[in-house]
Design a protein around this nucleic acid. Structure first.
Lengths: 233, 233
DNA sequence: GAAGTGCAGATTGTCGACAATTGACAATCA
DNA sequence: TGATTGTCAATTGTCGACAATCTGCACTTC
């Protein structure tokens, strides 16, 4: 009985570098450090009350994960994601989400499908009430549910990384875009496909859902571009 | 004219940590440090003639990239990939390769398709001669060509990471498995699909190709398992 | 006024030292 | 003899100091 307690104690011990990494990531994801900003080692060391060593270690991890980029002798900068890169990310995300849909169609049992049905229904109500604040967390929940229940941790991990990268892009985007009703009819098709246990159909529905989000992104950026042009002239 | 030169000089400057990271990755990929082995900071510091600081930084990068895992106060170990994880990786790889096929079908021009045709023909010859030493590099070349010409650097990067992970698994696998002729008929279908400019067909062909490699892997592991059982009894 | 040069301060990169943790081995106890 | 405890060496985690690099500003020259 003591072995589980020892393992738990071990899991809880984390180095300063790991703690700092998590905190800096939070600061970046939350917008406190914006894309393009430099991450100053000395300031972080003062802020966290540590030496620069663990700071540097944490930043190397964040760099390998793609959140920041290191320019030798000049510092570490939060990465900026261009529209092109965001589109590329969406395409990869669509492929992974499509696979998740395929896998869920093959492995979800009826109780789990029922959970998805509930989510879609709740989202339909939120959409009808034009209640974006309720809709958005449900949307996240649906996506997370599908990824976690795909049964493939490698898939879920890669997908999470991509979503994280997209946060760097969204930090600059003021237009949220996309109609709730359209998006939720796509969710309905996704869940129906999973329920039908047809892997191909589920793959198509999930892939298409993310690709349409990609198109909406491209479209909204074009609108923004047009608006800017008109203001100048 | 001097600005481009300065930029090139900047690109070339790399920290000790970056150099060490690349070297340790080479040692892992080449099998010099095997899955499960501990990576000793002091030994590396002696070997590279540096202090432990940059070693630690390099190892944090490698950890974030998934090649090694850090156990606080106990050291850094090269990761072992289980059969289950290898299967998961293959599935994700199939999804990404399928997307690459789809994108290539839409964007490759005839000269590029012709290059693929040459590769497939050369592989057919190597397969007919049962010349695995010639076949394997051509196989790599075909896969790399498709990924690089997908036009999506995010996709290519994720794919490369997955292939890198699979090296950790292969370092333990003695059976290479799979018939050359079968594999190359799949390559033929892939290239034909790209040539036909049918994205859906190309996606199916590329996805199926990697999924069959996944099946061959599972099958060969089952055979190994059977052999071991028979030896014991 | 524009261009070039030099310098100082800020910051990054690396080093070696000290502190903390772990695992292996030896000694002790029941 | 097996279980428990203590010790020590190896290794990891962190610190602060020194060296190197870069940028911005002031001064000089044309």
């Amino acid at each position: 009985m003591s072995a589980p307690l020892e393992n738990i104690a071990r899991i809880k011990v984390r180095s300063l570098a790991a703690l700092i990494e998590a905190e800096v990531e939070r600061m970046i994801m939350g917008g406190e450090i914006a894309p393009g900003d430099r991450v100053n080692e000395n300031q972080l060391a003062v802020r966290f009350g540590t030496s620069r060593g663990p700071i540097r270690e944490a930043l190397r991890s964040l760099e390998a994960g793609g959140l920041v980029e290191l320019k030798p002798n000049r510092g570490v900068f939060v990465r900026s994601i261009s529209l092109q890169e965001a589109c590329d990310i969406y395409a990869v995300r669509a492929a992974l989400f499509g696979l998740a849909g395929r896998l869920c169609a093959k492995r979800l049992i009826s109780g789990q499908v029922a959970e998805l049905e509930v989510l879609v229904r709740d989202m339909e109500q939120a959409a009808a009430a034009k209640d974006f604040d309720s809709y958005y967390p449900l949307n996240l929940k649906l996506h997370d549910f599908i990824m976690e229940h795909s049964g493939n941790p490698v898939l879920a991990s890669h997908y999470r990384d991509l979503v994280k990268m997209l946060h760097l892009f969204r930090a600059r985007s003021l237009v949220q875009g996309g109609g709730l009703a359209i998006s939720n009819s796509e969710h309905r098709e996704m869940v129906d496909a999973i329920s039908s246990k047809d892997g191909e159909r589920a793959h198509r529905a999930h892939f298409a859902h993310v690709m349409r989000a990609r198109e909406r992104l491209t479209h909204s950026q074009e609108i923004q571009s047009d608006i800017k042009t008109k203001k100048v002239s």
